[in-house]
Amino acid sequence: MKKCNTRTRVMIYIGFASVYLLGIFFWGLFMPESGYDVNYADKLLPPGSGHLFGTDFMGRDMLMRSVKGISVSLLTAALAAGISSVIALAFGVTAAVFGGRLDSFVNWCVDLFMGIPHLVLLILISFMLGRGAKGVTAAVAFTHWPELTRVVRAEVISVRSSQYVRAAYKMGKSRFSVAWGHVIPHVLPVYLVGVILLFPHAVMHEASITFLGFGLPAEEPAIGVILSESMKYIAMGKWWLMLFPGLMLLLAVMLFDIIGENLKRLWNPDSGNE
């Protein structure tokens, strides 16, 4: 039996997942509001040829709403990944390079943030900033750095204490050339995977606090809003309102996970041949 080449398979996974996610993102981003206009004539239609995912109580097309919702979540997640990853990089590298008190301080911050249940922290921050789009975005963006900080710190410490880095200094290499030649190529792949694995967390968290009512306002076509509305209709047998948006959210989260895990395999020099 001919086994499929793992590296090719990894690339295909990554390719498909990226195309799907980017597709949803841009489709939602540039979607005119008319895509999910209110149309009372067609309210609560089950899935069919006209409306693939059915319509809701205001006759809005559920496919379009879901796409827009996921897209909004992805935008929040991108902001979160952007901000949190920068914090993590700055904190992690500082802690590893300077050590001592700075290291203790960074570890203390990490422990503090990780000590509070994440959802509680999100709600607190969102609430403090007056809920709404601003609150949820800030909450998601500023709470996703601690794990990644730990990873970055550990990786930088491990590469800096490695024999080949110490030998490089002995061979007269400057700090800059060691950083450029040894440290960055070692830390960057791990860091990028970490950033990508931030996305599913951020997407889920944005959806969760919106669902709980601490996030995006009800008029926004967010996935959390859609899901919380659909709760009211589930007892009436309008299953499609919940099922399709839920599946789309799940799929988006899983695809990010797939990209992250596969990139990890691709970049790890040890597992390269498996």
Binding site: S162, Q163, Y164, A167, G181, H182, H186, D270
Partner: peptide, 10 residues
């Protein structure tokens, strides 16, 4: 251990 004294990515 020579394998520890070389960068595996080089």
């Amino acid at each position: 251990h020579p394998e520890q004294a070389v960068n595996p990515r080089w």
